[in-house]
Amino acid sequence: MIENIVSIVQENWLLLLIGQYPNGPLGGLASTFILSVLSIVLAFPVGILLALARLSPWRAVLWPATAFVYVARGVPLLMLILWVYFMVPLLIGRTVPGFVTMLVTLVLYEAAFLSEIIRAGILALGRGQMEAARSLGHGYFGAMRWVILPQALYNMLPSILSQFVSTIKETTLGYVINVPELTFAANQINNRLLTQPFEVFAILAIVYYVICWSLTKAATTLERRIAAKRAGTRRIAPELRPQALTAEL
């Protein structure tokens, strides 16, 4: 079995790494990675806006934002993918590649989860920070930009990194709508070999494991560093710790 795994990797490593590129669309691990990074980077500003809306006293922004977050947290990602797959071509009047469908879905989905993390981070700072900033003459946005967000985001870095790991795991769902990424590439190999499904998908699991395990490890280390740096300052109340809010797939 081990020899089989080694020979599959030797014969197919390029497909697993970049898909059929340059003869076809970029796929494999490269596509998974680009999709995850783009999703989290684009979801970040949306997440901040959602978090601010969720903390706003104005119902006109509070309610839609709250509804959006609850819908995203209550509906399976797969259902959201189907919605985007159906709605985006309808809205812009032309079909889009699966990669774009998946990107749009993940940005929406991740923004909801990131907004919960950021909101918890802001709440954990306590009101004193905001009051002090306002009393020093900052306006609301000035205080957010220069005082609140830098602290909240720094403290929440480990959670954001964990969310990135979740995003990598979520990109596998692109398999359902044939987005060329790592799981799709493994499936292509399996369809060609036909006789060694266990070996092929074991390779797939190992690759994901190595990537996600390393990133999770990095998040834990980062968390310990930040905790050490903040030792002596206020501790974050357990009910505001955002780990409990992140999604797993």
């Binding site: 790991v165 979520e170 769902l173 799981t183 266990f198 092929v200 998908f201 797939l204 994901y208 494991y209």
Partner: peptide
Amino acid sequence: VSYHRNVPTLVQLILWYFGIYSL
């Protein structure tokens, strides 16, 4: 715990259904 948390759930399902099933 480490395996089940770091491998995507979909990949675990695929491994069960297409991989372990065949063994």
